[in-house]
Amino acid sequence: MAELMLVIVGAALVNNFVLVQFLGLCPFMGASRRVEGALGMGLATGLVLTTASGISYLVDSLLLIPLELEYLRLLAFILVIGAAVQLTEQMTRKLSPLLHRVLGLYIPLIASNCAVLGVALLNSTANRSLIAALFYGAGAAVGFGLVLALLAGLRERAEGADVPKPFQGHAIAFITAGIMSLAFLGFTGFVRL
């Protein structure tokens, strides 16, 4: 159990997918204008990340490895991720139309979020167990949602701040993200995996 907690902390903070490994940067900048939208995006991405890492692990260990088809991992995982995104889209559309209205455009974009594919591929190269793979996915999801919400909060503040003209708009957002990345590098060495 302690080891699983370490996996979560490691994936969420120490090796944060966005700020330390620089995966999934496009929704990080694209969906962080408002805190509400960022939370919804983090939630949807988290759902996809966790389910996709679980299913990818099963496909990998039950199908690809026994048949010696490891070279098809990339293709197979992209298929699985696409299906998981579609499933999330169905669920939000039917169970929470309001969330679907807010996220609408972003949900299909999760399919091209490289953090999702990154988690699935890293799981298969690191030889984790199914539970550990699921926790790794969940940890990555927590980390992604956390930094997305943090950046959205900072950007909302920056909107009201007296930003020098050359830095206004996206420039200050990129600088903010860079400083956040520096701060997250402070976690380096907390957990060794």
Binding site: V59, L67, L72
Partner: peptide, 9 residues
């Protein structure tokens, strides 16, 4: 077999 597995998936 790779084609069959991917199509099946």
């Amino acid at each position: 077999i790779g084609t069959v597995v991917l199509a099946g998936l």
